[in-house]
Amino acid sequence: MDKRNTEQDFISAFWQLYEKKPIEKISINQLCQIAGYNRATFYNHFENIYALFDKAVYDILFPVKRNVFSSQNFYNLLQKDLMGSVLLTYFQQQDKYIELLFKRQNHYVLSDKIKKEFLLLISENVKPNTKVYEKIEILLEYQISAVLGVINYWYQKGKLISEQDILQKIYDISTKGVLTSLKTELQSIYEDSKA
């Protein structure tokens, strides 16, 4: 069996267990039993349970990495509407795992990986440790934290609107700005009350 299949078997077993219990309660023995391998095989592929967790999260981010972060020019990527459609597709495909990360309060791992990938992509065009790069870091921190905060709120509220609607709302706020979006919402309420 090749390395990729073995790692995928462990990742699959991890998600099965993670669905039922937090990472701290998952043992290597349980993982090995579900994956069908012994402990030595586990340690041939992963240093510990957290390294496996890291790889599992990386794998759910990989489709975005392939389709978005592989772009040669981040500026051109932002000029197109590609980002919204790729993220919507990704979110719908990975919803089960993303929801688990939020329910277990481990979404910071996903956030850190997304920030790292964006910064790697940007560093190809903007020199790190410059004023421009620092400003971009702040913008990314703000945006990614805000988006993940909204997604967390959406999960906590029991997904009151569809995935497509929440992602469209996030995209609209991201492109128009928070204050403009808030003004638009309040304006419609104000106009309805005058009618």
Rank of each mutant, 00 (worst) to 15 (best):
Y58T: 14
A51T: 14
I11M: 02
V86I: 15
S188D: 08
I173M: 07
F69P: 04
E191D: 15
I144M: 07
N5K: 15
S123I: 02
E191I: 15
K159E: 11
I23Y: 00
I28M: 06
W154C: 01
S145L: 03
K25I: 11
V126R: 10
N48T: 09
D54H: 07
Q143N: 12
Y190M: 11
F69D: 06
N48F: 00
D172I: 14
S27D: 03
D95R: 13
S188C: 02
Y142H: 15
M1G: 10
S193G: 03
V57Q: 09
K194T: 09
T89L: 10
L101Q: 04
Q79G: 00
S162M: 03
E191P: 00
F46M: 00
N29L: 12
L78E: 08
E163R: 14
L88I: 11
D112Y: 07
L167K: 01
L110Y: 02
I26Q: 08
F14L: 15
Y171Q: 13
H45T: 06
S27G: 06
M83S: 12
D172W: 09
Y43I: 10
Q93I: 12
L160N: 09
V109S: 11
A40S: 12
A35S: 14
N125T: 15
Y43K: 14
I173L: 08
I98N: 05
Q94I: 12
R4A: 11
T180W: 02
V57R: 05
G84M: 06
V147A: 14
K113W: 05
Y171S: 11
Q8M: 05
F102P: 00
K159C: 03
D9P: 04
E191T: 15
L100Y: 04
Q33D: 07
E137I: 14
D9M: 11
V57F: 04
Y37L: 00
L182P: 03
Y133L: 09
Q8A: 07
Y108R: 15
I23M: 13
A40I: 15
W154Q: 04
F42R: 01
K131A: 11
T89I: 11
I136K: 05
G84P: 02
N73H: 04
D9T: 11
D59S: 09
D81G: 12
L119E: 05
L179D: 09
D112N: 13
I173Q: 06
T41D: 00
D112I: 12
W154S: 03
S123N: 05
Y90N: 12
V147Y: 00
D2I: 10
Y155C: 06
I98Q: 03
A56G: 07
L31V: 00
I11F: 01
D54W: 04
G149R: 07
L160W: 06
S111C: 01
V68N: 03
K169C: 08
K159M: 08
R4G: 02
F102H: 00
L82I: 14
V132S: 08
L186W: 10
A56D: 03
L120E: 13
R39D: 06
D165W: 02
I151T: 05
L52V: 13
E137L: 09
V147H: 01
F14G: 00
F53R: 09
E47M: 08
K116T: 14
L179S: 10
D165F: 04
L167I: 14
N129D: 12
H45D: 05
L82W: 03
E134W: 04
H107F: 07
Y50C: 03
I122A: 13
F62W: 03
L77P: 00
A40K: 15
A56F: 04
V147F: 04
